[in-house]
Each structure stands twice: as structure tokens, then as C-alpha cells.
Design a protein around this nucleic acid. Structure first.
Lengths: 200, 200
DNA sequence: CCAAAAGTGTTGACCGTACACCCATGA
DNA sequence: TCATGGGTGTACGGTCAACACTTTTGG
């Protein structure tokens, strides 16, 4: 999600969403507040990415920026966006030139996400409650920017035992319909606490 | 490397090394400067770890801390440490209670290092120019806090083709003596640029 | 001659990858 | 009936893990 800057410098260019830390809030709280102000969303997965501290990043004055990235469930982004006029979603491969070092931030976030997706079932944060295996596969394909074999993907994902199959099919998107699944929260917690690695 | 605080609050407790960012330096430069002031070392591998921004981390006043960790070659730490009276090296498993959230920082650094050691030959930064395979193995054992099978370790490491065997033995440490090796810088760069993963 | 660390190969289990066809259904 | 995406199994090769004995040499 990018916003079109409506003030100088670089007015009119696309930019990541940002704001200033207040005296009595933590960095995490600030990130939540800023995201919430723009989108109205709560309960969003947020993770600190990196702190950018070069003296000349912002040509105006010296600014330190601690970048965070959020994972927002597919479907939630239909919610009304507050400053709708300026905020817009972009597919990751079509991100335009951004102000300052923001493209570097996006790049770092993507690398973090790729790595993370190999050691944690991030679908939890990015998919709706009920989702199909083809949906999950597409998520991994977008993150890793390559196509995956559906037989192998399904085998791998199911072998982890984290998914519960529901007795319900998604009817949109195909003639046949795809079964919905749900993450098994308990097994997931086991998994995470033991740490796992997973090639894809 | 820890220092004993010689000022309040928490005077006498162990602490990580820190300092304040100056107006005209980047975070990276500040980290280098602070490390150099204490140890006299240059050309040290430094990596930003995380920025701690809770409002009550320091009971005195509000402080934001961007933590960095350094990898210092075994052997270099024999160099005279400037503030020698207060700085001391600790084995990782014997780190005492530290001030504020510094134990959390150490913990995060260790986790980062474990992960990193699986995707990059960190021996480059941590071992002297010439090193033996048993030395390299001990490095991985310390980082991962478990023993490794020397046959498997040797096989794995050599199969990567990153090491050049020298015609020289380390005579201390064993009767038989162990051959020295050296990293092959070119192949290493290839490796890193292609990215690799490596189970241990 | 002996203690102590260096050095060496094989095997089985598991996992990743490649690959092709049938199924269900709405139009 | 057909186009579309969902769903399934097998076989090969590579990699990890387990495991025990020989070599060298200073004391």
C-alpha cells in the first residue's frame, strides 16, 4: 500500500506510509497507530524491519526511520481505506519509484518475507480464516516469484499436518470448486515453538 | 564483550557497550566509532540487529537503542583493549545478568547468528586467515550449542569447495597436528551472490 | 608405548523434484 | 460436450545422519 505524497518535498511521488514517533509511545505502538490511522485496521501483524540512519536519506533534514512491515489478510483490504484519495494497493512486481530510500525498504521487506515464509506458516497472517490450497499456493508463488508444482506443494503442506480440511467448497474461481481448509492453531503453535525449516 | 558500568543507574552491573548517536553520523558510523573507541579495532564486521523503542526500557529517561552486533576474529581479541579495567570477554553461555533489556539483545544476536551461519560462511569474519577444520567445527558447535559429527562436518564443508588446503599444520592443540585451510575468496563471493542454504 | 586429537567411507532413510492424467462442474 | 481449474502417485537422485577405526606424534 502506497500513498501519493501531497506535500513537499517530492510532492506527487509515491511513498510508504509513515509518521512520527510520539514522546510516550513505543516504536511498535507508533507503527500500529500509523497503520490504523490510514486503514482503520486493528489486530494486524506488524514486524520491525530495519532502522535507516544515514544522514542524507531525507534531503530536508536529518531523519531516522524505523521501518515496519505489516501482513494484511487477503479480503481485509476491501475495507474502506481512510485517506482513500491518496492510498492505493500495488502488486509487488509493479511498485513504482518511491521517494528517498523507500524502494530499498520494500526490497528488504520482500527478502524478509521470503525467508520467513520458509520457517513459519505465514498464511496465518495473510489468508482469511478459510482458504483453499490453491490460494495458499498462489501466496507462496507471489512471495517467491516463481511457479510451484501443485502436486509437490500439496504434499508438502499437508504432510506438515497444520491444516484441517473443511466440508465446504469454494465455488468461485473454478467449475469443480476447491475444498476449504483452516489452520490447526494448536499444531501450529507446536510447530513454531520447535522451530522448523522448510524448502520450497 | 561486556563492560562494568561505572556510573549510575545500575552502577557496577554488566552491560553491553553503547554510546550516543552524533548529529552528523549515520547509525552504522556510530556503531563503528563506539566499537573502535573501546577496542581500537577497525575493519570489523558489524550488522544492525534491532531497534528497541519501549518507553520504559531505561528507567531514567526515554532512550531508543539501535543494537548492532560485531563479529571479531578469534585472535584479534588479544589486542589491548582500551578501557581494559572495565571491559571483559565472556563465553556466551556464561553471560551474567545485564542492565535493562541487554540480555534480550544478546539473545536476539545469538538467534541471528545461528540463522546466519546456515546461509553464510561466517567463518570468514570469525576465524583468522588460516584455520583448521576442527577450529571451524568448534565455531559452529559454539554457535549452535551442540556437538557435530566430525566426519559429516568435514564432508559437508569440503563439498562446498570454499576451502583451500595449505601445506602447513597447526602443531599446537594436538600431537598429530591439523592442516590449515584458507577461504577461497572468489568461490565464496560466487556462493554468497547465488545465495545458499545449508543444514547443520 | 600410550594418550589425544586428526583424519577417513559407507549405508539407510528421508526429502525434494520431476512428471501426466483423471475429476467435477458451469456454461 | 468442453473448457477450466482441482485433485492425485510414483520413481529417481541427492542429502543428512549414524556410525568405528586408523594415523600421527609429543611426552
Amino acid at each position: 500500500m502506497l500513498i501519493k505524497r501531497d506535500f513537499l518535498p517530492q510532492k506527487g511521488k509515491w511513498s510508504l506510509v509513515g509518521g512520527f514517533l510520539e514522546a510516550k509511545e513505543s516504536l511498535d505502538q507508533a507503527a500500529l497507530r500509523i497503520l490504523n490511522n490510514l486503514t482503520g485496521l486493528n489486530d494486524i501483524y506488524l514486524e520491525q524491519l530495519y532502522t535507516y540512519g544515514d544522514t542524507d536519506r531525507d534531503p530536508g533534514e536529518r531523519v531516522l526511520s524505523t521501518a515496519y512491515y505489516a501482513l494484511i489478510k487477503a479480503g481485509d483490504y476491501h475495507l474502506p481505506i481512510k485517506r482513500e484519495s491518496t492510498a492505493k494497493w500495488f502488486p509487488i512486481e509493479k511498485i513504482p519509484n518511491l521517494i528517498f530510500d523507500h524502494n530499498i525498504m520494500v526490497d528488504k521487506a520482500m527478502r524478509r518475507l521470503k525467508r520467513k515464509s520458509l520457517s513459519q506458516p505465514i498464511g496465518f497472517e495473510l489468508l482469511p480464516e478459510k482458504f483453499t490450497i490453491p490460494q495458499l499456493q498462489k501466496l507462496y508463488e507471489v512471495i517467491h516469484q516463481r511457479e510451484l508444482d501443485k502436486r509437490n506443494f500439496r504434499k508438502k503442506i499437508l504432510s506438515m499436518g497444520l491444516l484441517k480440511k473443511l466440508n465446504e467448497k469454494q465455488k468461485s474461481g473454478s467449475r469443480k470448486g476447491a475444498f476449504y481448509y483452516r489452520f490447526d492453531k494448536e499444531k501450529y503453535d507446536d510447530f513454531v515453538s520447535r522451530g522448523f525449516h522448510f524448502e520450497i
